[in-house]
């Protein structure tokens, strides 16, 4: 392993200033250290964000009902948070509470979870060179083993977005706050996830000196109902094979707002535009099953991951029913 420098900045601005090519931010380091040990990353310096807990930590609720989740908040803190008790926010707590193992959840940060790199076994092995890691010329999973890979949104890489936290944040209309140098900016969370052609090699849109500071939830998110469901092969820590986060507003027996985002099925968290078709309808199993069928009809599975189509529908219906309180 190449020796690297570990920097402990004393402010976010200093952290941003310490960044650069071949330098990488480290939060809890769960994802990063794996990448170093597998020798798929080789930075000169790690810029440690953990000393910045005062600026980057904490879950806060303002009087206007908006919620701020610091980037260093752990998945377990989210799962346990009283500030996130509203039914509208349940999807986020459920997603973070189901992720990984108790040990990982207690260390893993929200920022790191959103910005972790994908788990494709070709990408994660230094023995393989693929187009996505920039060292090869094609997607190896495409012609190889891909039972855990994407069924939506595949352009040139079959990876899936691994984050449990991202789909619920998408349906809650979250914004991320980013600092570069002294300057802060806010953007919808969806803008974190790159489109083609950037997506060919990148998994998020932040620059090397962009520090993710916080995630903000609008007050409206707390209203309505929400749910997160995932299917996995094992019950003791496993990655989701398919996941669905749902947020629904229901008034007078009619759906007034609907937002759906799927996880583990596409290179990015996969928002379902069709969710809009639910608005104005009375929630029912039939309605949700119809929608799920429509959504997954557009999937493009491989021979090995065809199962995700069926599993995804079941999971989506479960999440919709739970969010609607049925």
């Amino acid at each position: 392993m190449n020796p690297f420098e570990l920097r402990n900045p004393d402010s976010v601005a200093a952290a941003s200033g310490a960044a650069g090519p071949a330098r990488v931010f480290k939060a809890a380091g769960i994802d990063l250290l794996d990448r170093l040990k597998e020798r798929i990353d080789d930075p000169d310096a790690l810029v440690n964000l953990l000393p910045l807990g005062a600026e980057l930590g904490g879950i806060g609720r303002s009087d206007d009902g908006t919620i701020r989740l610091g980037a260093l908040v752990t998945l377990q803190q989210i799962a346990d948070s009283d500030a996130l008790a509203a039914p509208g926010l349940r999807a986020l707590r459920e997603a973070c509470g189901e992720a990984a193992t108790p040990q990982v959840r207690s260390r893993a940060t929200l920022g790191g979870n959103l910005l972790q790199r994908n788990r494709c076994w070709y990408f994660r092995s230094a023995a393989f060179q693929c187009a996505h890691d920039g060292k090869g010329d094609r997607c190896l999973a495409w012609h190889g083993e891909n039972r855990y890979h994407a069924i939506f949104g595949v352009v040139d890489c079959l990876r899936v977005h691994p984050s449990n936290a991202a789909p619920p944040l998408m349906v809650l209309g979250a914004e991320v706050e980013v600092q570069r140098g002294e300057a802060r900016r806010r953007q919808p969370i969806a803008a974190l996830f790159p489109d083609s052609p950037a997506a060919a090699t990148a998994e998020h849109t932040l620059g090397a000196d962009d520090v993710l500071i916080a995630v903000h939830l609008p007050a409206a998110a707390a209203r309505g109902g929400s749910a997160y469901r995932e299917s996995r092969e094992k019950q003791s820590f496993d990655w989701a094979t398919t996941a669905a986060a749902v947020h629904l507003g229901v008034e007078g027996g009619r759906i007034t707002s609907a937002s759906i985002c799927l996880g583990a099925v596409a290179p990015n968290p996969w928002p379902v535009d069709d969710a809009q078709s639910l608005v104005g309808e009375a929630p029912s199993r039939e309605l949700f099953e119809q929608l799920a069928r429509r959504v997954f009809r557009r999937a493009t599975p491989t021979e090995q991951n065809r199962y995700k189509v069926e599993v995804g529908q079941a999971i989506l219906v479960d999440a919709l029913l739970a969010a609607a309180g049925l």
Binding site: R119, W121, Y122, S125, A127, F128, L140, H143, G144, E145, R147, E233, K234, Q235, S236, F237, D238
Partner: peptide, 25 residues
């Protein structure tokens, strides 16, 4: 064991992707 047919290299040669029943199972 899941092996990449083209190279003969095991793809799930770790305890993350080589799945073993755990306590909750």
């Amino acid at each position: 064991r899941i092996v990449d047919r083209a190279t003969g290299r095991m793809l799930n040669g770790d305890f993350l992707n080589y799945k073993i029943s755990g306590p909750a199972d």
